[in-house]
Lab assay of single mutants.
Amino acid sequence: NRRVIAMPSVRKYAREKGVDIRLVQGTGKNGRVLKEDIDAWLAG
Rank of each mutant, 00 (worst) to 15 (best):
N1D: 15
N1L: 04
N1V: 15
N1T: 15
N1W: 01
N1E: 15
R2W: 04
R2Y: 04
R2I: 13
R2M: 11
R2A: 09
R2E: 12
R3T: 14
R3D: 13
R3A: 10
R3E: 12
V4P: 09
V4D: 06
V4I: 14
V4G: 08
V4L: 08
V4K: 09
V4S: 06
V4Y: 03
I5M: 03
I5H: 05
I5S: 08
I5W: 02
I5A: 07
I5R: 07
A6E: 03
A6D: 04
A6H: 05
A6G: 05
A6T: 06
A6N: 04
M7S: 15
M7Y: 15
M7A: 15
M7D: 15
M7F: 15
M7H: 15
M7W: 15
M7N: 15
M7E: 14
P8A: 13
P8I: 11
P8W: 05
P8F: 04
P8G: 10
P8S: 11
P8L: 09
P8D: 10
P8H: 10
S9I: 10
S9M: 08
S9C: 06
V10I: 09
V10A: 06
V10D: 04
V10R: 01
V10L: 04
V10Y: 02
V10G: 02
V10M: 04
V10K: 01
V10P: 02
V10S: 03
V10C: 06
V10T: 07
V10E: 09
R11W: 14
R11M: 08
R11I: 10
R11H: 11
R11A: 05
R11N: 04
R11G: 03
K12I: 08
K12C: 12
K12H: 09
K12L: 09
K12D: 11
K12E: 11
Y13S: 05
Y13L: 05
Y13F: 04
Y13W: 03
Y13D: 05
A14Q: 00
A14Y: 01
A14C: 07
A14G: 03
A14S: 06
A14D: 00
A14V: 01
A14E: 00
A14F: 01
A14K: 00
A14T: 02
R15A: 14
R15D: 10
R15V: 13
R15W: 15
R15H: 14
R15P: 01
E16Y: 10
E16V: 11
E16Q: 13
E16D: 14
E16L: 14
K17E: 06
K17F: 08
G18S: 07
G18Q: 09
G18R: 09
G18V: 04
G18L: 08
G18E: 08
G18Y: 06
V19G: 00
V19L: 06
V19F: 02
V19C: 07
V19Q: 01
D20T: 04
D20I: 05
D20Q: 06
D20R: 05
D20K: 05
D20H: 06
D20S: 06
D20A: 05
D20W: 05
I21Q: 01
I21S: 01
I21Y: 04
I21N: 00
I21W: 06
R22N: 14
R22E: 10
R22V: 07
R22Y: 11
R22G: 08
L23C: 07
L23T: 09
L23R: 12
L23F: 11
L23G: 08
V24T: 03
V24Q: 01
V24M: 06
V24H: 01
V24E: 00
Q25N: 13
Q25K: 15
Q25W: 12
Q25Y: 10
G26C: 03
G26P: 09
G26A: 07
G26E: 02
G26I: 02
G26S: 05
T27A: 04
T27S: 14
T27M: 05
T27C: 05
T27Y: 03
T27Q: 05
T27P: 01
G28M: 02
G28Y: 01
G28P: 01
G28E: 03
G28I: 02
G28W: 01
G28S: 04
K29L: 13
K29I: 13
K29H: 11
K29M: 11
K29R: 12
K29W: 08
K29V: 12
N30P: 02
N30R: 11
N30E: 11
N30I: 05
N30W: 12
N30M: 12
G31K: 07
G31Y: 06
G31S: 07
R32V: 08
R32Q: 13
R32L: 09
R32W: 09
R32D: 07
R32K: 10
R32G: 08
V33A: 03
V33F: 01
V33E: 00
V33W: 01
V33C: 05
V33P: 03
V33Y: 01
L34I: 12
L34R: 11
L34F: 08
K35F: 09
K35W: 07
K35E: 07
K35D: 04
K35T: 09
K35Q: 08
E36Q: 14
E36W: 10
E36H: 13
E36M: 13
E36Y: 09
E36T: 15
E36S: 15
E36A: 15
D37V: 00
D37G: 01
D37S: 02
D37K: 00
I38W: 00
I38K: 00
I38L: 04
I38Y: 00
I38R: 00
I38F: 00
I38G: 00
I38V: 13
I38C: 02
I38Q: 00
I38M: 01
D39I: 06
D39Q: 05
D39C: 05
D39F: 04
D39H: 04
D39L: 06
A40P: 01
A40Y: 11
A40G: 09
A40F: 11
A40E: 11
A40Q: 13
A40V: 11
W41F: 14
W41S: 04
W41V: 07
W41M: 07
W41Y: 15
L42G: 04
L42S: 05
L42V: 11
L42I: 15
A43H: 11
A43G: 11
A43Y: 11
A43P: 05
A43M: 13
G44R: 15
G44H: 14
G44D: 15
G44Q: 15
G44E: 15
G44F: 14
G44T: 15
